Amino acid sequence: MAMQLGYTMMTEQAGPKDLVGHVVGAEGAGFDFAVSSDHYFPWLDEMGHSPNAWVTLGAAAQATSRIPLMTYVTCPSFRYHPAVVAQQAATLQILSDGRFTLGLGAGENLNEHVVGAGWPPADVRQEMLVEAIQIIRSLFDGDGYTNFRGEHFDVESAKLWDLPEKRVPIGVASGGKQASTIAGEHADALIATEPKPGLVEQFDAAGGTGKPRIAQMPISFGTDKAAAVSRAHALFRWFGLGWKVNSELPGPTAFDAASQFVREEDVEGSIPCGDDVEAVIAGAKAYADAGFTHLALVQIGGDQQQPYLEWARRDLMPAWREAFGS
């Protein structure tokens, strides 16, 4: 099964200028697409960064010419009103000459608590996401002015004055049946972080058949495997907690406490570490077998991007094309 290879701009582990330089390098190395996290906080203090994703993506759109760009993901419900998200996405689509996809999700307390709007239960957050998508889609339609009266959002006579020639596709993040159903009913693509076949099956059942399914997988490349394992543990030990836990934790201190008993060997067992191409391919095959069409790798460590990109171009890319035919 063909599966495209993606690059992740991790805003939690590098500053904005470095992130733009990294995605330029990813385009040069031959990656098929790039995604960017959209955070206000890093998960752990050790990660050390969290610049504004939209400003950074605007710069990336101007610095690159080929590689598709995507938010992975933006929450259109707390820090941003959906009408503002629609305007940002339409503008970025123009700047990128049609290379942008708007990835949306129900959010994480880690990032959204900063505006002081509280953190409602997951089912309410999903209701808010659906309303937000409806507003964004209406604004993308460009048919006059949008007025909306919802349970969670109101819009008064909104209109996007600069709409791109190519409509912005919308992806929706899922970790379970409810979100996959929302994605199938309201989105142009499914977004996930785990190779669960059920997510794709539920997406298809709700109307997603034939649409892209985009996932993400962390790796820790390095010629010194022990150092790569230690780096993955230091920066990504929270990853195994699962998104139902991660979405509720309020800040880096909470993530540190929740992951304090995660050992290096636990991380090594779940994240490919070192420079073994076959280990990465084996991990990626689980996503291909689950029905995903795109997989964005996360290289752990902001200061490791250049050697990672060189290795990806020289060693990983040929093996990937042979394994997945993309």
Rank of each mutant, 00 (worst) to 15 (best):
L199G: 04
E201N: 06
E201K: 05
E201I: 00
Q202I: 06
F203D: 01
D204V: 12
A205D: 14
A205L: 14
A206I: 10
A206C: 07
G207S: 10
G208A: 04
G208K: 03
T209L: 15
G210R: 08
K211Y: 06
P212W: 02
P212S: 04
P212G: 04
R213W: 06
R213E: 08
I214E: 04
I214W: 10
I214P: 07
A215T: 05
A215C: 02
A215F: 03
A215Y: 00
Q216W: 11
M217W: 01
M217T: 01
M217V: 04
M217P: 01
M217R: 00
P218E: 03
P218R: 00
P218F: 11
P218A: 13
I219K: 05
S220L: 09
S220T: 11
S220I: 08
F221R: 12
F221S: 10
F221H: 15
T223H: 08
T223A: 04
T223K: 13
K225S: 08
A226L: 12
A226V: 13
A227E: 14
A228V: 02
A228G: 06
V229T: 09
S230I: 06
R231Q: 10
R231I: 07
R231Y: 09
A232E: 07
H233M: 08
A234C: 03
L235M: 11
L235V: 09
F236M: 13
R237I: 11
W238F: 14
G240E: 11
W243C: 03
K244P: 01
K244A: 14
K244I: 13
V245N: 05
V245D: 10
V245S: 07
N246K: 12
S247D: 08
S247I: 15
E248D: 09
E248S: 12
E248F: 11
P250Q: 14
G251P: 02
G251E: 01
G251K: 00
G251V: 06
P252M: 13
A254M: 03
A254Y: 00
A254Q: 04
D256F: 12
D256V: 12
A257N: 08
A258Y: 08
S259W: 12
Q260T: 11
Q260P: 10
F261N: 15
V262H: 08
V262K: 13
V262D: 06
R263I: 06
D266E: 10
D266V: 09
E268A: 15
E268T: 08
E268I: 09
E268Y: 12
G269V: 10
G269P: 01
G269F: 15
S270L: 13
S270E: 08
I271T: 04
P272T: 14
P272Y: 15
C273T: 14
G274D: 14
D276W: 09
V277C: 05
V277E: 07
E278F: 03
